[in-house]
Design a protein around this nucleic acid. Structure first.
Lengths: 334, 334
DNA sequence: CTGAAAGCGCTTACAG
DNA sequence: CTGAAAGCGCTTACAG
């Protein structure tokens, strides 16, 4: 026979389905005797509660979606660990969508999430995400909190870090070490996050009266190999460069790799700084000085906000910013 | 007003809900005129299909669960990428459960998955997973395919690699290079996977008449730091060791780190081999010789099998083994 | 080609 | 304290 339902349990111990439902959900007043009878029937029949049916009935959901651009990036893995740990405590299940930095795919996922009765989502939007669509979606009562990558200028709840500040700190560190020819490698050209980081970089250059050279800026995808490739080009064309900031740790790893391949020494010939403070950053050789943004905390906080919104919290939109912190290691000094 | 339903659409264009349902699902014969009318109503009302309700009604599910022990391990990230890419093509949503190597947590997740109407799951079981429980679960019509970590001796569909063979290859490589004092570091003591790998290691030692020294074996958690710690101990106690096999790449990274910290050179003083071929392995310095097991493929294949089972495939239990491959890089030769 | 009606597994007022 | 009944949003024979 197929799975027993609440009706089977009810029949089995001669009560109504309403009663079974009430003991299942601990609502209403049920006599101890009946409760026991029901509990035992549940045990004997091997009944398992159908949460999906319950959700349909009371128009609720304990499902949240997570949309990220690339699960292969360790930064996001950390974030997911933080988020999923929190959601588990709250008895909420997580739908994972790996958009692979593709907006159509992302939109399709969002549709699926809604259709599947997720109650809301936290999302790290792919580059070129359509903000209007997000607004439509939210307008239909589907809460969304943005994480890591802000879009829509404060129209959505957001949790992330201060990218501008993060790069200011990194750049300042390099300048204090005496560097004047500092390159910036990585990120997608149209990325907001990247523009914020670049802003931090440029502002510090200006503060210190260091001329800004746009040739020192290049973009690339989030991978070691692209980071390495751009570094090689950069260093060949501009040998006067003494320091490189990687848009992400993963790019910075490629930067370090390229420097070694060119026969130079990281930290001695070229200083390198990253961004993210992925676990690996502490273990490269030399270890990577990088901007830490506590990915796990971001995940957890995003979870808190989305659940609050799903349960009706109507406070004004808010941004939660975790201040970036420079982790000084060995990649900037020999 | 809240979300429009099929009934709202039906009323809006004066047809029955059955008709709307049929155009939505492309079933039955609907005249072109009616179809258009309905489609337009859907558009105008902003109707969105409730897949969860549909699933409840026809007792189907397009949801699959994934249970893994540690999402922070890049090997699993890769696997997830492969799995989720495939599931997306199949219009299936993925529940992610990060069990954090904890059996109770894992069991709780499984209950939630079933309760939430997932149709099946692929699982990389935590150490000490209760096989009987898995069998019970499957017995209730919830298909499970195991990935990466085999448990239950062929009682479940499985996709993964041949760990025994993988370590044979690695050990053989080291022996050919002239090593005789080869340590094995990492893995949880009770892990099956570990015992299989150790079997490969020992069998190769025997084949070549190299005495087996149990002091050369140590276990530790899946992290760089623990790998580094064990390495330091190992090398202090047994300075004659000239090669170390890391249970996983992530441990091998810690091994390399410790070797450097001890003032020695990886590849020259001590050869290092890993297991997994995580992307990072190609970018460490020196790059890591390691056993590759194509995590993405495993993810994808697991997805294919679970969907087949969910749609009624009753073939006998099967194991799909991707042969391991040694990626020779720089960590074994100066 | 289309509609009326029952039912998926639950919950929730409303009676009693 | 417990039951009868309606309903969440969909689908599916069965008529017509």
């Amino acid at each position: 026979m197929s799975k027993p339902t609440i009706a089977d349990v009810a029949k089995y111990c001669s009560v109504s389905t309403a009663t079974v439902s009430m003991v299942l959900t601990n609502k209403g007043r049920i006599s101890e005797a009946t409760r026991c009878k029901v509990l035992q029937a549940i045990e004997e029949l091997g009944y398992v509660y159908n949460q999906a049916a319950a959700n349909l009935r009371h128009k609720r959901s304990n499902l949240v979606g997570l949309v990220i651009p690339d699960i292969t990036n360790p930064f996001y893995s950390e974030m997911i660990a933080g988020l999923s740990h929190y959601l588990e405590q709250q008895n909420t299940l997580l739908f994972l969508a790996n958009a692979e930095e593709n907006v159509e795919r992302q939109d399709k996922f969002i549709d699926s999430l809604i259709s599947q009765n997720a109650g809301g989502m936290v999302m790290c939007p792919a580059t070129d995400t359509n903000v209007d669509y997000l607004k439509t979606v939210r307008g239909r009562g589907f809460p969304v909190v943005l994480a890591v990558r802000p879009v829509g200028e404060g129209q959505f709840d957001f949790v992330g870090t201060n990218n501008f500040l993060g790069l200011q700190i990194a750049t300042e560190h390099l300048i204090q070490l005496g560097h004047k020819h500092i390159a910036f490698i990585g990120g997608q050209e149209r990325s907001k996050t990247r523009s914020h980081r670049l802003g931090g970089y440029m502002s510090k250059l200006m503060e210190h009266g260091i001329p800004f050279n746009e040739k020192y800026i290049s973009s690339c995808g989030a991978s070691r190999s692209e980071g390495a490739l751009e570094t090689r080009k950069m260093l060949e064309e501009h040998p006067q460069i003494t320091a490189i900031i990687g848009y992400q740790d993963i790019v910075a790893f490629g930067v370090m790799r390229a420097i070694k391949d060119l026969g130079m020494t990281v930290g001695k010939d070229i200083a390198v700084v990253g961004f993210d403070d992925v676990p690996e950053a502490a273990d490269t050789f030399p270890s990577l000085t990088t901007v830490s943004v506590c990915a796990k905390e971001i995940g957890r906080a995003a979870g808190e906000i989305i659940l609050a919104r799903m349960s009706g919290n109507e406070e004004p939109i808010k941004s939660l910013i975790f201040p970036p912190k420079l982790m000084i290691r060995q990649s900037c000094s020999s």
